[in-house]
Simulated assay, not measured.
Amino acid sequence: MEIKRTHCDDIFKCYSTCALVANGDLKLLFATEDKGPCYSYSAADLNKKEVVWEGPGGTMSIVEIPGKSGEFLAVQQFFPTFNAPESVIVWGKYVDGQWVIEKFIDLPYVHRFDILHVDGVNYFVAGTLCTSKKDRDDWSDPGKILVGILPDTNTQSIELISVQDKLTRHHGYSRGYWNGKRAGFFTADEGVYVLTPTSDRISTWKTEKLLDRRVSDISVFDVDGDGVDELVTIEPFHGNMFCVNKLIDGEYKIVYQYPNEIDFAHVVWAGLFNGKPTIFGGVRRMNKELFMIRYNQDSKQYDLTEIENGGGPSNIFIVNQPDGDLILCPNREKGEAIVYKVKE
């Protein structure tokens, strides 16, 4: 395995990342969760930097809009720590060689969101960490899963409907598939829930509970190649356990746990990396490591590889490429935007 590490920039409390195509160029976005900027870098030449915005910051998530080249949605004004009564979703567009950012909607305490493209419709799905707060340790007003049909432009309105409420520390989200259909997976103290969009009215949609444990973050993929997806979880909230959960006799059971002592795990991703089923994990305290896990078909065990330590990653974004996949890594604790190119 050959890993090339590129330091794109120093960004204080660098937290969010995303990749999208604008004017035929793959652009890699990195943003701070504090007050400050979001920058983009050309994947073809990481020295080519553009300002997406200089502020206000507070960016938890950035998501490309399906079917719209150079357009995305992002969270702004969700500041540390859980200071988000005025958080919003903004709509970004790449116009005439520069980024144009406009407000879309107010959405207090929105932490994770996504756009699920199903049967020609873009569904906006969002998870609020909570609904209100008296102070950072107040969790008395739980969060919700909100859904609406994304309009064509930010000047059009959207109606958001709650399909699940009473979700305490509603922190994690992952896009995936469930029963062969595009779905979103949400996590909270109450467990793991899956939401599968249908053609029925959104008000009739129901979530399904998959796991009854306190879960902070999740990714869902068939990591051992048996045809059934595993749930890869961080437990509990900002937790000290990184687990692979396998469906055994109708129940999800832990079959692997990251062996090193950790605190404040925050990155979990599972999918195809360089064509192989792969898990990535990251931790924001102690060794602050980024690591990779793969199931070994010969030994029937999980193999662990450390990519780096000391950075304290907050999220990652994977870009599949024919000449080696990319890991976009905001090292929140070190305050840097990193891109790894990995060849195997």
Rank of each mutant, 00 (worst) to 15 (best):
M1T: 03
I3G: 00
R5G: 02
R5K: 14
A19I: 08
V21W: 03
N23W: 01
P37M: 01
Y41A: 03
D45Q: 12
E50N: 04
P56S: 09
G58E: 13
E64D: 05
G67D: 00
K68Q: 10
S69K: 15
F72G: 09
L73A: 09
A74T: 10
V75I: 12
Q76A: 15
P80L: 09
P85Y: 14
V90H: 06
W99R: 10
D106K: 11
D106W: 07
L107T: 10
H117Y: 14
F124C: 15
F124M: 08
V125H: 15
V125W: 04
T128E: 01
S132I: 05
K133Y: 00
S140E: 00
G143R: 09
G143L: 08
I149K: 04
T155K: 10
L160V: 03
V163Q: 01
T168Q: 04
Y173L: 06
N179Y: 11
G180D: 10
T187H: 03
E190V: 07
V192R: 10
V194D: 02
V194K: 04
V194N: 04
P197T: 15
S199P: 06
V215K: 08
S216C: 15
F221L: 11
D224C: 03
G227L: 11
T233P: 01
E235M: 10
P236S: 15
N240S: 11
K246G: 04
E251Q: 12
Q257T: 01
Y258A: 14
I262Q: 02
A265H: 13
A265I: 07
F273K: 06
N274I: 01
G281T: 12
V283T: 14
M292D: 00
I293C: 02
N296A: 03
K300R: 06
Q301M: 11
T305D: 03
F317A: 10
V319Q: 07
P322K: 06
D323P: 06
D325E: 02
L328V: 04
L328H: 00
N331Q: 15
N331Y: 13
Y340A: 15
